[in-house]
Design a protein around this nucleic acid. Structure first.
Length: 280
DNA sequence: AGTGTCGCCTGAATGC
DNA sequence: TGCATTCAGGCGACAC
């Protein structure tokens, strides 16, 4: 499940292989993923890649024909870059192949097919349905304490659900929401509008810190990811609470047999992990 | 407008 | 062993 740090790293890998290169052809091996492949997808053949960027968890491949190819990896999507010598028959769940004129190809493999591909006019990109309603990037100055306080003011939903709302801020998925709230010492179940100003500042710092740490870890371990078999290393050993129910949290002094350690609860049909003793 | 629920999809993990 | 069930989750659609 690629999250913001992984998508960032994939973009850098793609940029290295694709920028300035000409697309020879596009193949699709089925008609849709989560949404249908765009009807005009094949019109990008012959175009040259100008630039590659990330917005939220979307990959944007800008072409020199005024079009931008948009890719979302969903839950299980992978982009595998194959040099000529590495190419064979399509594997299970390969759905789209971008053939570069230089012989390299980029294969989109997605077992669960939650991924999405679309083609948009570059000049209208920010108005595209994928992007028009997105909040600020977490590292953007616009994601300030003042901004977040205003956004949370009328929200009665749990703070964890609030920070996962992409209209509020992009890039905080289920894993990093739990991690950031642990780091900030905030109970994920508290109503969003009851988070105090000092906690809001701490929360912003915590979101940035966990994402930054993941990007740093991903930068090294995901370098191979784009180029070889696509296995996500993930950073389980870096997680403080995610997936660690019944285990002690960081610098835990509890008697785990008595307290049960890290708790797993459900919020909005998603798993949340937290320490009731460190998060209030 | 804010909130809660559902469906998409397959493979891994678990249950019987 | 093998079959059935549950769970995982980003995102949009939809109901209230």
């Amino acid at each position: 499940m690629p999250e913001l740090p992984e998508v960032e790293t994939v973009c850098r890998g793609l940029a290295k292989s694709m920028t300035g290169e000409k697309l020879a052809s596009v193949e699709t091996l089925r008609h849709n993923l989560r949404i249908p492949f765009p009807a005009d997808l094949k019109t990008i053949a012959g175009a040259t890649v100008k630039n590659i960027s990330r917005r939220a968890k979307y990959i944007r491949i800008e072409l020199d024909n005024k079009k931008t190819l948009i890719i979302h990896l969903g839950m299980s999507g992978r982009l595998v870059i194959q040099k000529k010598s590495e190419q064979g028959d399509p594997e299970k769940h390969d759905h789209m192949i971008l053939n570069l004129k230089n012989g390299t190809r980029i294969v989109f493999n997605d077992a669960r097919r939650f991924g999405m591909v679309d083609l948009a006019n570059t000049s209208e990109l920010e108005q595209h349905k994928f992007f028009s309603h997105l909040g600020p990037e977490p590292f953007d100055k616009k994601f300030s304490a003042k901004y977040l306080a205003e956004k949370l003011r009328n929200k009665k939903i749990a703070i964890k659900l609030a920070i996962m709302d992409q209209e509020l801020v992009v890039g905080v998925g289920n894993i990093y929401a739990s991690e950031a709230l642990f780091r900030a010492g905030i109970d994920p179940q508290r109503a969003a509008h009851k988070i105090r100003p000092d906690e809001i500042s701490e929360l912003i710092a915590s979101i940035r810190a966990v994402l930054k740490q993941a990007i740093k870890a991903g930068g090294s371990s995901l370098r191979d990811y784009v180029q070889t078999d696509g296995e996500l290393g993930y950073f389980q050993d870096k997680w403080a609470v995610y997936g660690k129910h019944h285990q002690p949290c960081k610098s835990c002094i509890c008697d785990i047999d008595k307290t049960g350690g890290i708790q797993k609860i459900t919020q909005g049909a998603r798993s949340t992990f937290y320490c009731p003793r460190k998060q209030n």
